[in-house]
Amino acid sequence: MELRPAFQIPAIIKSLSDVVLPAVDPANKLAQEQGQLVVAMLHLIAQRLPLQYRYDRHELSRYLALADALASAGAAIPEAADALHALAASAAEGRLLMAAAGTEPAALEAANLALRERVGAVVTAAAATAQDVALKAINAAVMAHTQEELLRERAWIALQGWEGPASGLPAIETLIGS
C-alpha cells in the first residue's frame, strides 16, 4: 500500500508551500499565520512520525522503571497501598506489552518490500519454465493472494471515491484484524 503518511505528507507540504500559500491574500493575516502553522505542524509530523513508535516504547520502559521505584519506595506507606496496587496491575500489563513490542514499523515495511520484490522475481523466473503444472500452481497462489491484497488496498483508500459510494467495499478494520 503506497498511500501512507511518509509519502503523502511531503507532497502536501510542497503543494502548500509552493502553490497555495503564495496565493493567499497577504492582507488576510489570520489565513497567512494559520497557513504557515499548518506547514510547520506538518513538518513536525513528518519528522517525528517514524520515531513515534520508538518514542512510545521508550516512554513505557521509563514509566515501568518509575513504577518499580515507586513500589519499592512506597511499600512503607499504608495510605498509598491501594494506589500502589492499581499501579502494579497497570505495570504488569505494560510489561506484557513491552515484551511484545519488539519490531519497529519501519522494519515491518522493509520486510514487506523485500518479500514483494523476491516474490516478483520468483514469478518472473517461473514464467520461463516449461513445467506447466508448477507454473499453474504458482499463478494460482499469486492470484489468490492478489485478490485478498487488493481488497485490503481498495478498502484502505475507499474514502478517495474511485469506486463510488456503491462499491460494497468492507471497512478496512474488518480486514486487518484488531
Binding site: 507532497a11 503543494s15 502553490v19 487488493l150 488496498e153 481498495r154 483508500i157 478517495q160 474511485w162 469506486e163
Partner: peptide, 28 residues
Amino acid sequence: APRNGKTHQDVLVSWITGISYSLLDELR
C-alpha cells in the same frame, strides 16, 4: 515522481496513485 518532489503538483499526482488499486483489481 512526488516521492522525490519532482512535479509542480505532487499532491495531485500522489492522490491519483490511489486509482491504481481499482485498475489492478480489473487487471486481476
